[in-house]
Design a binder for these strands. Structure first.
Lengths: 200, 200
DNA sequence: GTTGGCATGTAACTGGTTACATGATTAG
DNA sequence: CTAATCATGTAACCAGTTACATGCCAAC
């Protein structure tokens, strides 16, 4: 079996209780899209591959005239998943993000627009954080309660905390840039020294 | 001109003072690889496209027998970059990471191995954080000092802080899991209730 | 009766990586 | 003298996305 992370993604979702391709996509959109977005056009061929490799077994689960497949992870599939989970060398978390690229080049913008850019970046992180906190975390925690499966909730929590951190970080940068460009606006009696190597 | 982020990446790097394709790749490896990894096989064709579109001007910069091209951003190129930097709707920062996938499915592992997985994830974030803190940040700050261009350093700082946060978060999770599975190991007089919805 | 969700799949395209191919110059 | 770095590019491949194509069923 070829070691594609997408295969393990599907395998893992099946082991978590989802049975059909459609269900995998739906469940992912709710809970895992922040760290592993996917599409149906990826899930279906992957299920086919896994079946051919004997990692999953397909069974018909049609309801009346509406066809549906139900997949089950085979013994080999379980073993492969476990082996992958144990896999030792962890590649670094790599982000590839257009927003960060904009930040990197922000010197090209006039000061006021730099601040607006930073503000937008703060807002988008805030929005993602809120989604995770308010929508996916509660669901993941409910799932943990009823099933005893805790790591989906832990993952959601990490996402919520991470994006909250990013939001705060950008909020702080925003304040600092605003203070620099507009010193009179700082608190009463404040000497707005933009000097010392303050945080960002 | 087609709105590919890779075009703006190259455009931006040129505006930052790098002149050749090779130099762009090298500079990226040092400073921006954490948020925008790239390869020569992407940079060269991109430079070609940008030239055909009139965004950059290629000039020969060969040193003796060693050929080298030097690109300069045209007026149109500068305008396009600026427009892109201003571009309003900021797409959410999307991560796609195998490590997080492992975390999500970690319930399938026996407890001791879950902890080891979390430990590995902590370590990889720590390693990336250290690289950013010790290698890229100093360089970016030196560059800021000599050029007045600050946002590369700000970006590096964000990366350093972000990965440090992630490291701490996983360290905390690691401690909590260890305490749960091995209650005698907790501090003297500690009632190791694994109950209350503590952080992760 | 028509919109939206359930359900499955394929085709075309895009963006990116690794490997290949070549050659000059410099540092050890 | 040979390994590393500078320098440019192409070809083959891979993973992922969007768009297309089809049809059932429930809700409004």
């Amino acid at each position: 079996m070829k070691a594609r992370s997408s295969s393990f993604f599907v395998l893992g979702m099946l082991r978590l209780g989802t049975t059909s391709g459609y269900a995998i996509k739906k469940a992912t959109d709710i809970s895992m899209r922040y760290f592993w977005p996917t599409s149906l056009a990826q899930v279906y061929p992957e299920l086919g591959r896994l079946e051919r490799e004997g990692m999953v077994v397909r069974r018909d689960d049609s309801q009346g005239n509406r066809s549906r497949a139900a997949y089950e992870v085979s013994e080999e599939g379980r073993a492969a998943l476990l082996e992958w989970l144990r896999g030792s060398e962890e590649k670094p978390l790599r982000v590839r993000d257009e927003g960060m690229l904009r930040l990197y080049f922000a010197d090209a913008l006039p000061v006021a627009e730099r601040i607006r850019l930073v503000q937008r970046l703060r807002e988008r992180n805030g929005a993602t954080g809120a989604e995770l906190r308010e929508e996916v975390l509660p669901l993941a925690e409910a799932f943990a309660e009823e099933s005893g499966i805790r790591f989906p909730a832990i993952t959601a929590r990490f996402g919520a905390d991470l994006y909250a951190f990013a939001e705060e970080w950008f909020a702080k940068l925003e304040r600092e840039l605003a203070e620099e460009s507009d010193p009179e606006d700082s608190g009463p009696g404040d000497q707005p020294s933009h000097s010392g190597a303050s945080n960002p």
